[in-house]
Every structure is written in C-alpha cells, then in structure tokens.
Design a protein around this nucleic acid. Structure first.
Lengths: 321, 321
DNA sequence: CACGGCTCTCGACAAAAGTCAAACTTGGTT
DNA sequence: AACCAAGTTTGACTTTTGTCGAGAGCCGTG
C-alpha cells in the first residue's frame, strides 16, 4: 500500500462506521481486515479527533441560576455544573464541562491563549481530541519549574496536542530576581513578539489563583508564604496568569509583579472570549476580582460558587438601593 | 423551547455517558433508572442532536484530485467521493459526504438557503441531527406540486428539522402561467421580503439539474418534454433552483424563466459559501455551466465526475496555449 | 370507576463492541 | 544474513450495548 496506509485506513474505517452507519464486521469485510482491527482503528480515530463526539452544553447554560449570574455580573455566558447531583467528585464535573465548553467555543483558524494551573491542566487532561485546522495555542505567561505536571508550557502543549494545533511556548521564566532583568527580557524580540501576539487571540482559557500559602506561586517557590501574606495585606486579591491582581482586577503595584514575564491585562481584555474556569470554592474573592477587572466574559463554575455569587450580587444591590 | 423533564433526563444521561465516559450501567445507577432506559435515552440524544458525532471530511479534500479541481476551476474547496471503492451505491456515498460537509460548514446563527431536487432531499434524509441555535433555513425558490417527496418546501423543512432550526418556506408556486402574474406575485411583500432575504444567507445548498426529459421540471409538469427540447436548442444548459441557465451560467432569456418565482442568481452569488452537490454523471454540462456562472464555491462530486472535469480543464488549457 | 389507548420502564436475551496475548510484519542494526 | 524492537493484525474470549415484548403508570372518556 501507499505511504501511510494506517492513517488512510483509520479514516476509511471511521467514515464507513460513523458516517455510513455500518457495523464493525461490515466495515471489516469492506476493508478486508479483521473486526478487531476495525475496533482498534475506531479507537484511534476517536483519539486523534478524526471523529468528534460532542455533547451539547445547553443544559448548563439554560439553567435559571446561570442566567441570573450572567445578568448580575454582565457576563456573556455562564455554565453551572450541578454539584454532587451527578458524580462523586464535583471538581471533575466542572473540568469536564469546561472542556466541552472550550471545544464548543474554539473555531477553525483561532488563536488561543492558555494560562496554567491545576484547573487548566485538569481540563487539558480530560479534554477529548479534535482535528482543528490552523489553530495556534499560545502560552500566556513565562515558565515556572514546578514539581507538578501543570507547568505553563505543559498546559499549552497538552492542549495544542489535543486540538492537533500548533503550540507556541514562552521561553522565559515566569518571575526573575530583579526588575531590571525582567525589563530587559521583555524587550527581547522573541519575548516581545510573543507578548504582543497575545492581544490577537480569539479565545483565552484560564483560572484564577488564590492569594494564600497554598497558591502555586508559593508551592513552586516563586514567593515565600510570608511574602504572599505581605502582598495580601497590600491588597492582593487573586492571581491571573502568574500576576497578582487587586480587588478591582488591576495589576497590584508591587515588586513581584514588576519582575514577572506575563501577558498584560490589557492584552487579555482585548481577547474577545475570555473563558474562566473556577473549581475551588475558596476562590470566591479572587473570582470576584477577576470579574471586576473585566478578565472574564465566559464563566464555568460549580453550583455552590454560583449561589455565593448571586448572594453577593443581591446584597450589593440591596445596599445600593 | 422549554425543557421538559424527559429532556432533562436525556441530557443528563448523554452527559454522563459521552462527556464523562461512564458505562451505561453506571449511568443507570446514577440516575436510578434501568440500563435499558439509558440506552433508549442515548439513542434519543443522538437523534435530537444533543450529542453530535461527526467525522472529519479531511480525507476527501486532501485528495490530490480534489486539489487539482480546486485549482483548475478556482473553487474554494472540493470534496471527492471515491467511487465504487467503498459501497455498492456510489450516489449514497456522495450524499453522505455532502451531508457531513454541509454540517461542517454550518455555524451557529447562520442563515442557509436550500434549493430542491432528489439530490438535496437525499442529503436531508441521511443527514444526522444537530442542535444548532439560531439557524434559519430558507427556501430558495417557489413550490412545485411534485408527486415525489422532494418538493422544495419539504427539502427546506426536513433540513430545518434536522438542524433544530427555523424553516422559512416560500408560499408561492415555482412557475406561473403568465409573466404578468409572476411579476405581480414577486412584488407581493411576503414574497419580496423572502427573495430579498436570500442574499443575506451565509450558506447555500443546491444541486444542478439537467436539461432533458428526465428533469424534475418535466416530471412535475412545469415544462413539457417538447418545451424542454426547445429551450435546449435556445441554449439551455442546466437548471438552478428552478431556473434555466445557459452555458455561461446566466439566466436564459425565455418566457419560462420570466414566469418563475425563485432566487435571482445575483442573490445566490452574494452568498459566501455556495455548496453544490452533483450525484449523477450525466450532469457534466450543467455543472460546467454552474461553475462558469460562479454559482458554486464548494463542490461535492464523485471520482468519475472529477476525472471528467479535469480532463475538460486540461483540454481547455492545451487549446489556449 | 372501569376501559381502552397512550407512553414510559424494565428484564431477559441477542447482537455488537472491546480486549488481550500470541503470531506476524516491517525496518533498521549488528 | 541474522536478529531485534516496534508496531500491526488476528482469533478467541469477555464485557457492554441494543432490542423487544411484557407490564406498569397515567389520563381522558363513556
């Protein structure tokens, strides 16, 4: 047979099975191979995104609560994962939902900005494969040598791999020891171009971090617990793409932020669809800050978090009136 | 579209099964129903487009021949169904491919123009269900009381049903007995609006008809075999949305055309993506005319037809040089 | 309130799909 | 040429899924 018999065969088998609706044994006899091979080809077809199986996420936006959150915070779309109604682990449910929503939002030819964190990596990990043409996945912030598998570059590459897209990594550390060095590095053509390209993204995927000792920034050694505490008293409210933001969703004026190589918030806000996913209930204040700062247009959260947001919004309206 | 309790269950089952990857018995115990019910719900979910299973049509555009046809005729994209390599009935293969391509081209919020004919109805009939929001399917030409099931309004409605979209029918006959009456009818607000709306479509789906006694126009009594023959000698080369076109793909100047209520070719050309599907090998000349008239940007054909097109293109280039 | 007609649900069986170790290619290396 | 490693392919077996008729609930009607 020709150059790549495997890929051709996978495609043909998938076509006959999924598009024409033949049974596996019928496909097998058509292609003169055993049914076992057909089964294997079909698995590969699903794994490589030659066939796409997607379920509508309508149910989760049609929710009354989701509508209320949209209205209360002026968001474009909100998806709410019903907590403990379905599965043992609610955070998995949020990630599965987020992955589906993400795939629904991506279009051919898109440029996608991806941040990092446990949430983002979990999403990447459970996301099904797709065969999107001309998609580029860009890393939103510098790297951090984390002892975990959710380093910024890994998040980017894994998502790129799943989408069959091109991954554009950031070859710089997230945080440097002096402001001087950070400034010089940001001026480097390679880095400058990458930073400039972020505003051209069509879609961003990120979560928001909490300002506490459990933060990845602390765990990965970018900040000490004491420093974190200090930033907190200076008004730090959350972490976005490795940067500390205040309660209004603006970059906090501090030495740490000046030493960071990451996407400017203005660039992030220039991205049309900003998909934020929050799994942990403890991230309530960080999420509020991110929303206040206009860093999120599309939101995926759990039912409990949604309840807290609505409660907060109601209280705010009452106070105002 | 209020979600009924049954729909909720279908959605939940589909979500657990397809998104979370649980087995049917696991889903059953989660939802406290029998596995048999789960299986039934899942079938319904597939039938209503709550879950989408689509296979990439890449293979058919990646083909060398498809590329050549694209280049030779200046088309945006060409898909070629390999003939007799796969199944007994090659025309089914073309229709299955066309349906997949069509679903790949449709986007949320699109407005889609649909003509009529056996080809179009076959495509509608085998097309899988989808849950596209805010899609409108508009009928491109007036109606014809055909003794078959592929009347213009049926084609439109069936496709609308499959996509879960709104169907906009044409409440006028395709052809009238006098030019006067056709003119008055075209001026009617209802009709005028519909005709005007055609140019706003994002995607059109049609085939091209042959100018012979087998044509639907003859079979449905719009024209007699003798009239058809007469038109042929006047330069008729094909039929598009009920109108007769000449070899250059322009409307033929004849009484029949002046009595027809259908989309103006200029409106059709204003549609960004014009997907033409041709099953029969005998429609070679009609297809050439349609291409010449710029009525087709995306094309789905069989391998044999592709061969003839290339042969023709080569001959034309040789003659020119 | 009993009766058909209706849809929804379930259990049991049949059909189809998934899996795995072993046999077999294939392409490169000693 | 012989050998090895990586990757396919297969038959036999197990698990999962599809289907169908029976039964259960539900409602409007005579």
């Amino acid at each position: 047979m020709a150059i790549r018999p495997a890929e051709q065969l996978i495609h043909k088998a998938a076509w006959l099975y999924y598009a024409h609706g033949l049974r596996q044994d019928e496909v097998a006899s058509q292609l003169n191979i055993s049914r076992a091979s057909v089964a294997m080809y079909l698995r590969k077809a699903r794994e490589t995104g030659i066939v796409n199986i997607s379920t509508s996420t309508q149910l989760f936006t049609d929710d009354v609560m989701a509508r209320k959150v949209e209205d209360a915070f002026g968001l474009d779309a909100v998806w709410i994962a019903p907590e403990n109604a379905y599965l043992a682990d609610p955070s998995t449910d949020i990630a599965v939902l987020a992955a589906s929503v993400f795939l629904e939002l991506v279009k051919k030819g898109d440029r996608i900005g991806v941040a990092w964190g446990r949430t983002v990596y979990t999403i990447a990990d459970i996301m099904s494969f797709a065969d999107l043409q001309d998609v580029t996945v860009v890393q939103l912030c510098g790297n951090l040598g984390a002892p975990y598998s959710y380093r910024p570059d890994q998040c980017t590459m894994e998502i790129a791999r799943r989408l069959n897209a091109k991954g554009l990594n950031f070859y710089a550390p997230l945080v440097l020891s002096t402001e001087e060095l950070a400034k010089s590095l940001r001026a480097e053509p390679v880095i400058r171009d990458q930073l400039a390209g972020i505003a051209n993204c069509d879609l961003a995927l990120y979560s928001v971090g909490a300002v506490d000792a459990d933060s990845h920034l602390v765990k990965c050694g970018a900040l000490s617990p004491a420093e974190m505490e200090g930033l907190r008293s200076q008004g730090a409210a959350g972490v976005i793409a490795g940067q500390i933001i205040d309660a209004g969703g603006e970059v906090l004026d501090c030495s740490y932020n000046r030493r960071v190589i990451s996407a400017e918030l203005a660039s992030l806000r220039a991205i049309e669809k900003r998909l934020m996913v929050v799994q942990e209930d403890t991230k309530f204040e960080p999420l509020l800050s991110a929303i206040a700062g206009g860093l999120c247009t599309h939101l995926v959260i759990g039912a409990h978090m949604a309840g807290r947001l609505l409660q907060y919004a109601e209280a705010a309206t009452k106070k105002a009136s």
